[in-house]
């Protein structure tokens, strides 16, 4: 168990190093000079050269990468080109908002879709099956930005429950801020709740057809106790992996939802910073988001292997 945890953490570190290197390399390869774009096309080249020197851009690639990496570990994410402020001061509070937004969405998905998957297995079928299936498909197809617009109109403009575009301060009005984030989370989670519910249901169906279920029934279990004691535990592993991937998708979708509902999170700032070629900001955000995604995957694996020891042995589950 301990050995597996350590191995998994080792993999996480290696992945993060790769991500950070690729991120750094990507901005090296992109055409365009940050110093030039900061000073404008009319600036004399000696000024541009001076700024390049000041920003450390005239140093060799690997040296800059190494400095950036060691800075990262000591909490120094560099200085923003556009704002001339430490990156951490710029993104700290935004990171908090985005993480809260994705955690609320994630909680909604877990709390709603796992019971819904079980219910739709237990009471599925029958003549109204097509209604359930079409509703599920509809929910899967609703893009978060559309729900965002709809919620802004209904709850923001008609009922004035929250004010889209005017995000309350997280520390001064936590209740109002939380409500605002909650609407964002609804947009993010609807399609994923539909997907996870469907996934949960189909996993239960396929587990129910396995030989150990037949044995369990012949040993005296009824339908309900087979589901509760035998099938759910075996179904959870694939749902947990699926949820690990869902975390990554939520994060990607926050960018759009933050734009639509005016939530000042990382996503919005990321789009802005890319446009301004503010590389230190972009690099920091990309690495932090990547870390969050990789961490979710690692946690999913660790949870799974504590449910099902076969995963620890590295065997396949066919």
């Amino acid at each position: 168990m301990m050995k597996y945890v350590l191995k998994r953490i080792g993999m996480l570190v290696v992945t993060m190093l790769l991500v950070s290197f690729l991120t750094f390399l990507a901005f090296e390869l992109i055409s365009g000079d940050p110093a030039r774009s900061m000073l404008g096309t009319n600036a004399p080249s000696y000024q541009v050269d001076a700024l390049r020197h000041e920003l450390g851009l005239d140093q060799p690639f690997f040296l800059r990468y190494f400095k950036w990496l060691t800075g990262f570990f000591s909490g120094d994410l560099g200085i923003s080109y556009s704002y001339r402020q430490p990156v951490w001061d710029l993104i700290g509070s935004k990171l908090m908002i985005t993480i809260l937004l994705s955690l609320i969405s994630f909680a909604l998905i877990v709390i709603i879709s796992i019971p819904m998957g079980i219910f739709s297995y237990q009471w599925g079928g029958g003549p109204f099956e097509w209604i359930r299936t079409s509703f599920n498909q509809l929910c899967m197809a609703i893009p978060p930005f559309f729900t965002g617009i709809l919620l802004s109109y209904v709850f923001g403009i008609l009922f004035r429950v929250f004010s889209p575009g005017d995000f309350p301060d997280l520390y001064e009005e936590p209740g109002a801020a939380f409500l605002h984030l909650f609407f964002g989370a609804i947009c993010l989670s609807i399609p994923r709740i539909a997907m996870t519910t469907r996934m949960m249901r189909s996993t239960i169906v396929s587990e129910m057809n396995k030989a150990y279920v037949r044995t369990a029934i012949s040993r005296g279990n009824d339908r309900r106790s087979v589901l509760v004691t035998h099938v759910l535990k075996n179904s959870l592993t694939s749902v947990v992996s699926f949820l690990g991937q869902t975390m990554a998708e939520i994060l990607a979708a926050t960018i759009v939802v933050e734009q639509v509902l005016g939530i000042p999170g990382l996503g919005r700032f990321l789009v802005l910073s890319i446009a301004q070629r503010d590389y230190p900001v972009v690099q920091a955000i990309v690495v932090i988001l990547a870390f969050w995604v990789v961490l979710a995957g690692t946690l999913a694996d660790l949870i799974n292997q504590s449910i099902d020891p076969r995963l620890r042995l590295g065997g396949d589950l066919a």
Partner: peptide, 15 residues
């Protein structure tokens, strides 16, 4: 009455 199944690899719950 009870039954013993053929395949001992899949007839026990793996968890």
């Amino acid at each position: 009455p009870q039954i013993i199944f053929q395949d001992p690899y899949s007839s026990l719950n793996p968890t």
